[in-house]
């Protein structure tokens, strides 16, 4: 189109937006760096570098600052060699570079514990669970939602029960799912389906109802009836919004993943995280948590980009 005259300003607008988006990530990172690398901001612990005359101190041990000061005073009184140490953060707050290293080793090095899964193995397993859970939920939920949004009789028949059911917390079905589906992936996928499906029907029914009535009426005056009204008008009419709903719902599916993976034999990224936390490898824990975010956010970003080319007529995209 003839937006050429506007191009420079559109361009600089885009650049500003990108910069702000990068900034929104850099800001928290900056805070993390400050807390990690500038000693006087927090650092409530002391990492012992030389035990001196304190018999229970060991090199690398983390002690409270007050305890360290007490012991230093004690050695001075007893004329023993004083211990030495440097300010440190608690073990549960590793510095950025440590997490970055864990990120790398998680993919590149054999895990320290034998039999422990690699980070990418855990991750791949989790992604599969999400994929199947979300696919099954969508295969049922999207058609049901569209039907409920189009035909009020159908909505009145289905929605009260669904409204009720969605208040039942999905994890509560864990034991039941294990009894029925075994201890492996079945119950995990089931939890994701239970967690997503009911919201999905209601949200998509609502989206369907929001389709402009004039559009449907126009189609009817052009001779559209019955199933064709559904396939030729309702579905294409709501498609961009349906796609947006699905993106949001996919995000919710990820939140159910953590619970789902604790059911039966623990597996996937959750198993990896709990394992690493048990051995106090918090750098690995952070790396794993972050990669969930990266995958979730990345998928959404790609899906968002894709929607621009899929739905070139969708005006709401211009407003983002």
């Amino acid at each position: 189109m003839s937006l050429i005259a506007n191009l420079p300003s559109v361009d600089s607008e885009m650049r500003k937006r990108t910069l702000l988006a990068i900034g929104s990530f850099l800001l928290p990172l900056l805070v993390w760096c400050l807390v990690s690398y500038v000693p006087f901001i927090w650092h409530p612990k002391v990492e012992v570098t030389d035990p001196g005359g304190v018999d229970y101190f060991q090199v690398g041990m983390l002690v409270d600052k007050s305890q360290f000061e007490d012991e230093t005073a004690f050695t001075r009184e007893e004329r023993l060699p004083p211990p030495a140490g440097k300010p440190a953060n608690p073990i549960y707050l590793p510095a950025p570079h440590e997490v970055a290293k864990a990120f790398y080793t998680g993919f590149a090095k054999q895990p320290v514990q034998k039999d422990a899964p690699w980070l990418h193995e855990s991750l791949w397993h989790s992604i599969q669970i999400i994929f199947w859970g979300f696919l099954i939920s969508s295969l049922i939920g999207v058609p049901l939602g569209i039907l409920a949004g189009t035909y009020s009789t159908f909505a009145r028949l289905s929605e009260p029960f669904i409204e009720y059911f969605r208040y039942l917390p999905a994890p509560a079905f864990g034991a039941l799912a294990v009894a029925i589906l075994g201890i492996y992936d079945g119950p995990k996928i089931a939890i994701i389906v239970i967690g997503t499906l009911f919201q999905q029907v209601l949200i998509i029914a609502n989206t369907t109802r929001k389709l402009e009535a004039t559009i449907i009426e126009a189609a009817r005056t052009l001779g559209t009836r019955g199933v064709k009204l559904l396939t030729k008008v309702v579905v294409p009419g709501i498609l961009p919004d349906l796609y947006r709903d699905q993106r949001i719902l996919l995000g919710w599916a990820w939140t159910y993943l953590i619970v789902a993976e604790l059911i039966g034999t623990s597996s996937g990224i959750t198993f990896y995280i709990t394992q690493q936390a048990r051995y106090q490898h918090f750098d690995n824990v952070y790396a794993a948590i972050m990669i969930i975010g990266i995958i979730g956010f990345g998928t959404d970003l790609i899906l968002g980009r894709l929607s621009r080319s899929l739905f070139p007529w969708d005006r709401t995209q211009d407003r983002r």
Binding site: E212, A218, A219, T221, L222, V233, P236
Partner: peptide, 28 residues
């Protein structure tokens, strides 16, 4: 009920936004 023997033009824009101009006209 509605039928093709009566054409209707609405006040609000009732075109199908997902179809091009030509496809809109081809709809009927």
């Amino acid at each position: 009920g509605p039928g093709q023997d009566r054409g209707m033009v609405f006040q609000g824009y009732s075109l199908f936004p997902w179809l091009t101009v030509k496809q809109n006209v081809m709809f009927g």
